[in-house]
Design a protein around this nucleic acid. Sequence first.
DNA 1: GTCTATATGTAGATAGAC
DNA 2: GTCTATCTACATATAGAC
Lengths: 190, 190
Amino acid sequence: MGSKGENNRQLIVEAADQLFYTRGYHQTSFRDIADATGIPRGNFYYYFKTKDEILHAVVEARLQVYGDILNACEQKSNEPRQRLLCFSDMLAHFEDNIIVTGCPIGTLCSELAKDEDDLQQVSRAVFKMMRSWLAEQFSALNYSDADARAMDMLARMQGITVMASAFQDRDFIHRSLAELQNWINGQVSN
Amino acid sequence: MGSKGENNRQLIVEAADQLFYTRGYHQTSFRDIADATGIPRGNFYYYFKTKDEILHAVVEARLQVYGDILNACEQKSNEPRQRLLCFSDMLAHFEDNIIVTGCPIGTLCSELAKDEDDLQQVSRAVFKMMRSWLAEQFSALNYSDADARAMDMLARMQGITVMASAFQDRDFIHRSLAELQNWINGQVSN
DNA sequence: GTCTATATGTAGATAGAC
DNA sequence: GTCTATCTACATATAGAC
């Protein structure tokens, strides 16, 4: 705690987080992370026994980051629709990254869907958190199918990122986000 | 043409097509393709100079396959909405593969979005074909924003495949497809 | 805790016999 | 056209000095 070691560990996780996003998990090597951090390759195994332990740590870090975003949306308003709008704003906030490399969560899941069950489950964690948070908001709007609407909203946002990234189309994000926010505003309390 | 060589070339492309889908492009090695076809590794370089030449050939093959599907939808009906419904049926038709490995086109684009421009452009080709075909159908419904609606429809379908694959949720495909087809039926001629 | 040197495997790609 | 043997680079991972 506060030691040099914990600091290095955090540096590795931050660099890996970024690289897993921009290059993909399998396409990121220890050498890449070493170059990004200045920490020698062999040193990594003091902190992590295997590459997928780094993945676990990256996902933990992401749970923290996106958990903070969810909390921020909660504190911004008590109105569920406002919270949903706040969540959808991520599309605009991360627009620059999305058109180049897609969604960090979605692309990780898509990549690791082609791997062992173990890795799939890890990558799914952030989606799970978002899904249940979104479902809470829809529940607060008295929907009985709150979880289904949560999935719908995640699917809409993922579809937007996939196509915006495939065609590197910034305008498509703007247009789609406007439509999505219209849809959210149409989700009135029952 | 009709020679043994062309036959082997086709076997390589078919095996690579399948493996690029189920394991991803980078995670597929020449050894994997060799094992799948029985054709020795070193032999591949007689047909393809590099791995990305195999990718080009795979995309060509996919353009053929999905082009045939588009033609089939055209022949099935002259009514644009019927054609759009036919296109959306792919979600049900390929359901088994989608929940396990996602969409072959979408996941390829997502993976290669993290690589050089060259590979990105190749992977985008099938989406381009679908996009313009869908836009034709919306144009036939007298929409001035036909291309935008084509993008919307692709985005919706991609979002469905990403989330269905992430949570391996078959029911989500069924439910979402029904909603999508409701949306298509609402696209009445202007 | 830190770092170098290295083990072991496999990747994409090539050479050259047949 | 077909196949074996092999090159070079780099992957994950380890050993062990400091």
